[in-house]
Design a protein around this nucleic acid. Sequence first.
DNA 1: CTAGATTGATTCGTACTACGAACTAGATCG
DNA 2: CGATCTAGTTCGTAGTACGAATCAATCTAG
Lengths: 148, 148
Amino acid sequence: MPRSRPADRPRESATPERLADALAQTGFATVGLLTRLAADHDLSLTQVRVLAILRDRRLRMSDLADHLGLERSTLSGLVDRAEARGLLRRVSCAEDRRAVEVELTPAGRELAARGGAAFAAGLAPLTTRLTVAEQAGLVDLLERMLAI
Amino acid sequence: MPRSRPADRPRESATPERLADALAQTGFATVGLLTRLAADHDLSLTQVRVLAILRDRRLRMSDLADHLGLERSTLSGLVDRAEARGLLRRVSCAEDRRAVEVELTPAGRELAARGGAAFAAGLAPLTTRLTVAEQAGLVDLLERMLAI
DNA sequence: CTAGATTGATTCGTACTACGAACTAGATCG
DNA sequence: CGATCTAGTTCGTAGTACGAATCAATCTAG
């Protein structure tokens, strides 16, 4: 497990170790922010991920489960709840009548858009610690690391 | 909500937007890795966070709950299960007999150490896409952004 | 062309996570 | 001392996640 913001962080530790720690911290910070924002709308982190993924696509249940790394059975309930709240809808697939596709409703799209803005705003206290040039450098490094 | 690895990622979008997306991606990648590693040992992400936090400290239940951003009631069960598995132990506090401190057992410490190594190793496919100098640059930017 | 296998999704039962409210025991302050 | 506050636990509820079983539609071999 990565160290968590140790009071006595060893400044001299090796880069790979520090990178792992910094990435874990970044992960908890961003995912934590996302979780808090989601909670404001009574959504779970997973539901946020669903909205984020469907923002650009329309997927079958199986494909969505794969994207999320979840079992199909888990996704059924997840989509049930989101559908009941009017955030997305199931559309039966024309090519394969067993399959069900999922897409955002206008309400879901609207929520996703507002959430995206809130996320960027919530990140500002962190990101503005860097200059604009540094932010651009960070984007470049992260995108290359993630192979986006 | 941040966009999730869109197939048609707009290359030309503004830095703040791309930074938010890149940070969200980084968060999901690192936290996802952590979750998978945790699952190998039948641990939840939260239990991993507990181990990570206690790696350097010994805390009261309340303080631990604050560090995790959880309610005390949630923490009780969490610590129950981890204690039952021998990863940590409750120590009653001398100064305040209401209070309970929590610390890792040797087994918990050992697991945390092995987990940390596994995490760094699991990150390697991503981090090695950058040169050593770039990794150092990334560490610097992230640490300054997180104000570590 | 149909019998059997495979695939897409759902339902069911179980365990864990998380919350808030109610409670107990110990501290603190008037 | 008694009132109040704090630390932690217990309880009930809802959401998340899994795997096994199931059903319907599709595919494939003979």
